[in-house]
């Protein structure tokens, strides 16, 4: 069965993943809202997932896609715990600004 990789070179997928990952990194450095920082982390995870899937299809090896499945499960766990922590921080500090969360800094 022919996939898109027979017409689109794998380098395009590499480029797309690198760009998406960099946008995620930029968001983490750019924004002060902790929820948006979380979303940018999700973006980075998705860029890696996309590349794993592309190479798994290229090599005809199912292990890469199994790994993507595990990454998705870990991302779901991470978001559940992280958002619970954020809600607790908001209940105590009345803000999710990461500038205010500096009690453990020094």
């Amino acid at each position: 069965m022919n996939s898109i990789l027979s017409v689109v070179p794998i380098e395009y997928y590499l480029g797309l993943s690198v760009i998406l990952f960099t946008i995620g990194v930029m968001g983490v450095l750019f924004r002060r809202n902790a929820i948006i920082v979380f979303m940018c982390i999700e973006l980075m995870l998705n860029a890696v997932n996309l590349l794993l899937t592309a190479f798994s299809t290229l090599h005809g090896e199912a292990g890469g896609q199994v790994m993507v499945f595990f990454i998705m499960a870990v991302a779901a766990a991470e978001v559940a715990v992280g958002l619970a922590i954020l809600v607790m921080i908001y209940n105590n500090l009345r803000t999710v600004d990461i500038k205010e969360m500096n009690k453990l800094k020094w």
Binding site: N2, L5, S6, E11, G60, E61
Partner: peptide, 12 residues
Amino acid sequence: IFPTQVSQNEVG
């Protein structure tokens, strides 16, 4: 370094 021939295995 990438294989030029796309694998025809059904993996997805």
